[in-house]
Design a protein around this nucleic acid. Sequence first.
DNA 1: CAGATATATGCCGTTCGAGATATATATAGC
DNA 2: GCTATATATATCTCGAACGGCATATATCTG
Lengths: 110, 110
Amino acid sequence: MNATLSALAEPNRLQIVELLRHRPLPVGQIAVRLKLNQPQVSKHLRVLSDAGLVEARPVAQQRIYALRPEPLKELDAWLERYRRLWDDQLDRLEEVVLELKRKEKKNGHR
Amino acid sequence: MNATLSALAEPNRLQIVELLRHRPLPVGQIAVRLKLNQPQVSKHLRVLSDAGLVEARPVAQQRIYALRPEPLKELDAWLERYRRLWDDQLDRLEEVVLELKRKEKKNGHR
DNA sequence: CAGATATATGCCGTTCGAGATATATATAGC
DNA sequence: GCTATATATATCTCGAACGGCATATATCTG
């Protein structure tokens, strides 16, 4: 989860993910399209790979990288628990503030 | 988007978000529950606030922080574009690899 | 085997984020 | 106004991350 988030938090890596959403690509192609140096791309792919966000398959000297949906699925599952928030919770903050003020009056604030 | 991801990429900040999912809390409470020093909590809240993930409302000397769903909603919308991936795409990689090999044979690789 | 191509890795310098401590600001109560 | 409490900010140090460059590794070609 954390690995996924930190991997995606880097703009270039996010771009790589977006690129691979359309179709798998070899390292060189990614470098060209994102105007990055090949070594950086390899490094970023390494991070993405460690996070399980991509996987490579060798074809001759090339390595074709493709997106792995699992971590994104996980992220989606995590967000699931927050989805209710943007339905109910009209203004839970206000509610709690009022509650605190009530308590304060009652207990003479400790 | 990037702000959201980098904010959530830090474990303590993610924990803060998870804490605030249940209910808004003042800084001190967050510090106690996560066993963090107050200054770090304030710092993290600053980052979360800049990312729009939380908002504060002052009550006396306290500041009650609450979750703001909007950035999470945005993240959810971004993920939406990837949801199709974990349905179809049984093995798009394999498919592309085969395609490349075919091309190679045809064109005599460049 | 030599040369070319594709990719990965190692090293360096710089920047950035996190923790720790001290201090500043605001508010409440006396 | 003085003191205590809650929070924010400033400063420091340290380690980790990123970019650039050189280089190693693997594979293909002739």
